[in-house]
Computed example of a mutant assay.
Amino acid sequence: GTSGVVWVRTRGLNQMGEPVLDYVRWVMVRKRAPDAPAPDTVVPDLDPVVDPAGLAVPKGLDFSDYDFELAGEPHRLGDYHPGERIDHVDGVTIEEAEHMLATRLWQNTAKVHFDATFRNDGRRLIYGGHVISMARALSFNGLANAQMIVALNGGAHANPCFAGDTIRAWSEVLDKAETRAPGVGAIRLRLVATKGDSAAFALKGADGKYLPEVLLDLDYWALMPV
């Protein structure tokens, strides 16, 4: 009863005033007066997934001569199939201080990420953007040729991450699509970060809620050579 969720649309423009980014997100906001009644719920009507036909592929992108040997992994779009799950195997333990420089660079100034005295348990909360970055890096073990995230369909920071947690990750292939660019296809992936066994591929319990070891559930489109 002390906070609520606010839906926000953000648009990014280049120097010519042309839109290059447009997305909707929901953020948790503290109430000014905890005893104030909550307003009526208003949820925007949004598409469940970005239409692959509308993906913005960079002009001139050409994967027809993609060098798989230099990439270090031979897998292309045709090697992946919807429903397939990939264990990214490796783990990264988050230390007390390493995440703070990145969090500052991302211009997040929330005190709970830097000052341990702002939590009663004295633990430093890890910024969710750092978890996304670590999970994305881990995903290259198995998805090395999934280049360029071109759309985010949705996602959730399912549970908090603290210094000392070890992040692991797995991905599920949700869909594939063609693009007009030569040799370029699109792959829709669900990236899940956990602080438990990534090979378990567990996401939610019987009650429909995220399991406590699940940190991140991210649904996105990336470009990949066909």
Rank of each mutant, 00 (worst) to 15 (best):
R76T: 05
E73Y: 13
M100T: 05
D79G: 14
D121L: 06
D51Y: 12
Y80R: 08
D79M: 04
V49M: 14
S64K: 08
P58A: 00
K31I: 03
D35I: 05
R25T: 12
P19H: 09
T109I: 07
V27W: 06
E18L: 15
N108I: 03
W26H: 13
L46A: 00
P37D: 12
F118L: 15
G78S: 11
R30G: 08
H81V: 15
P52H: 04
Q107A: 11
D35V: 01
M100S: 11
W106N: 15
K111E: 11
T93F: 05
R119C: 04
A97D: 10
H99A: 08
R30S: 08
Y66S: 11
H81R: 15
R32A: 08
H113D: 01
K31C: 00
V5S: 02
Q107G: 01
H113R: 01
P74L: 07
Q107S: 09
P37E: 10
E69S: 01
L21E: 09
P74W: 09
G83E: 11
M28L: 12
V57N: 01
L55G: 03
G60N: 00
D62Q: 02
Y23G: 10
T93V: 08
T93Y: 00
D47Y: 13
A71D: 02
A56R: 14
P48D: 12
V20T: 00
D65A: 15
E69Y: 04
Y80M: 11
A116V: 06
K111Y: 06
A116K: 13
D47K: 15
E98H: 04
Y66A: 02
G17A: 03
